[in-house]
Amino acid sequence: MDFTTETFDATIAEGLTFVDFWAPWCGPCRMQAPVVEQLAEDYDGRITVGKVNVDEEAELAGRFGIMSIPTMILFKDGQPIQKLVGLHSQGQLEAIFDSALGE
């Protein structure tokens, strides 16, 4: 799911939402993408997973102080609860997701 400035607030308002801030020219972002896509599939229905292209949505990147990419933020009911910068393994992200879900 691609988030835009127009859809962002409504999408993250309820439940858990994981947002990957990335850019197409970013090598580490391209390496992180398959992990994020797999997590979206594995946690479908429990955590909303989406992406924000920082080149196209600079306002959102600025709003959350994104200085390096990839940066990923886990939101709960619209509020950021965890911010991750750089590459993270699927196992690391699963542990964060499971903790947030209380599993």
Rank of each mutant, 00 (worst) to 15 (best):
E94A: 07
G102M: 05
I12E: 10
D44R: 04
W25P: 06
V35C: 00
F21L: 06
V54I: 15
G27P: 05
P34G: 11
I66C: 09
L87M: 15
I47M: 05
G45P: 01
F8N: 12
R63T: 13
G65C: 06
F97T: 02
Q32T: 03
W22D: 02
L60M: 10
F97V: 04
V35G: 00
E56V: 04
G50K: 05
Q92R: 03
L16Y: 11
A23Y: 08
K83C: 01
T48H: 08
A23P: 13
Q38D: 06
G86M: 00
A13C: 12
S68Y: 08
V19R: 03
D42G: 06
I73V: 15
I73K: 03
M67H: 03
T11E: 14
F97E: 03
E41R: 08
E14T: 15
G50L: 06
G45F: 01
A23S: 14
D98W: 07
A40G: 13
T7C: 12
M31A: 14
R46W: 02
D20Y: 02
G91S: 15
A23H: 11
A95H: 02
V85T: 13
M31L: 14
F3E: 02
D98E: 15
D42K: 12
Q92K: 03
K76N: 12
E6L: 10
W25A: 11
Q79E: 15
C29G: 02
D44A: 13
D20S: 02
I12N: 04
K51F: 04
V54M: 06
S89C: 01
P34W: 07
D42T: 10
A61N: 12
F8H: 12
L93E: 07
P70R: 03
E57N: 15
C29F: 02
G102L: 08
E41L: 05
I81M: 11
Y43S: 08
E14D: 15
Q82L: 14
Q38I: 02
P80K: 09
E56R: 09
P24N: 07
R30F: 00
T17V: 15
G65R: 03
D9F: 09
P34C: 10
